[in-house]
């Protein structure tokens, strides 16, 4: 499957594929499309996302796996090309470039004003849910009958720093690692603001996937370290609904068919 790359290092062709994949994803209004998959995390009910538990990292790894495949399927259908693939890039919010500029260039509005499907996502919810979101989370989504996600990021230098990431990577148990990383993750959701700042709406923003690709990559890097350890035995054979995937099946990303690129030359 895909080679996930740093969002700042995508080639023009890769960025075009990603944008067209998201646009095609947005235009599918059944259970293969963006509205369905974004809604799995939060609204509409039920809320499936796992936070504050040992399932946080495995559940979101399964989530990215299924969305990455749905994006590729959407792009293939839109182009009539069964060979094209897209991979979810990661946003390294601890990098120097992020501390200088904030959000990845690919996910910001374009300088020339042209449409960028990665700068906001449609919020496909029923009228009752939209009303509650506007009441409970003012500023999360735009006004009007066809809302899209809104962002209100903090200053770039408020993003997590590399030493904080390194502290997570030096954790000596899965539980410790997961708790440190989840708290860092929570802070980035708050940093982006808007829809990303709360669980019910976060996954409607396309930068959600780049953020969680970074979280998943850090778990992968920790798994490569000598400190790697499995999640608690009691959860290894737990399913991760609504996905037909167990915790154990998420532990090896090579078996899930993707890799994280350290560097790609040429």
């Amino acid at each position: 499957m895909g080679l996930r790359k740093n969002a700042e290092n995508l080639t023009p062709a890769e960025l075009t594929d990603l944008r067209e994949a998201f646009q095609a994803f947005y235009e599918i209004d059944d259970d293969r499309g963006h509205g369905f998959f974004a809604g799995i995390h939060g609204l509409p009910l039920p809320v499936y996302c796992e936070h504050g538990t040992a399932l946080f990292l495995p559940w979101h790894r399964a989530y990215l796996y299924h969305v990455e495949r749905a994006l590729t399927a959407a792009l293939r259908r839109a182009r009539g090309d069964d060979t094209v693939e897209v991979a979810l890039p990661w946003w390294d919010w601890s990098s120097a470039v992020s501390h200088d500029r904030g959000l990845p260039t690919a996910f910001r509005p374009t300088a020339d004003g042209s449409t960028n499907p990665l700068s906001a996502g449609p919020v496909v919810l029923g009228s009752d849910d939209l009303e509650l979101v506007r009441e409970n989370l003012p500023g999360a989504i735009s006004e009007g009958p066809d809302p899209v996600t809104v962002r209100d990021p903090e200053e770039p230098d408020e993003l997590p720093r590399d030493p904080t990431v390194q502290r997570a990577l030096r954790a000596t148990t899965f539980t410790d690692f997961s708790r440190i990383l989840e708290s860092i993750h929570n802070g980035v959701h708050g940093w982006v603001g808007g829809a990303m700042s709360a669980a019910p709406t976060a996954a409607f923003d396309p930068v959600f996937w780049a953020h969680h690709s970074m979280i998943d990559r850090l778990w992968y890097l920790w798994q490569l370290s000598p400190r790697n350890g499995d999640p608690p035995a009691r959860v290894l054979d737990r399913a991760l609904p609504p996905f037909p995937t167990t915790v154990r099946e998420t532990l090896d990303i090579s078996s899930l068919g993707y890799e994280y690129a350290a560097q790609v030359i040429g």
Binding site: D129, S183, H185, N186, G187, A198, A202
Partner: peptide
């Protein structure tokens, strides 16, 4: 930091 559910839906 706590990632909230933003109320009951």
């Amino acid at each position: 930091t706590v990632f909230g559910h933003g109320g009951c839906y």
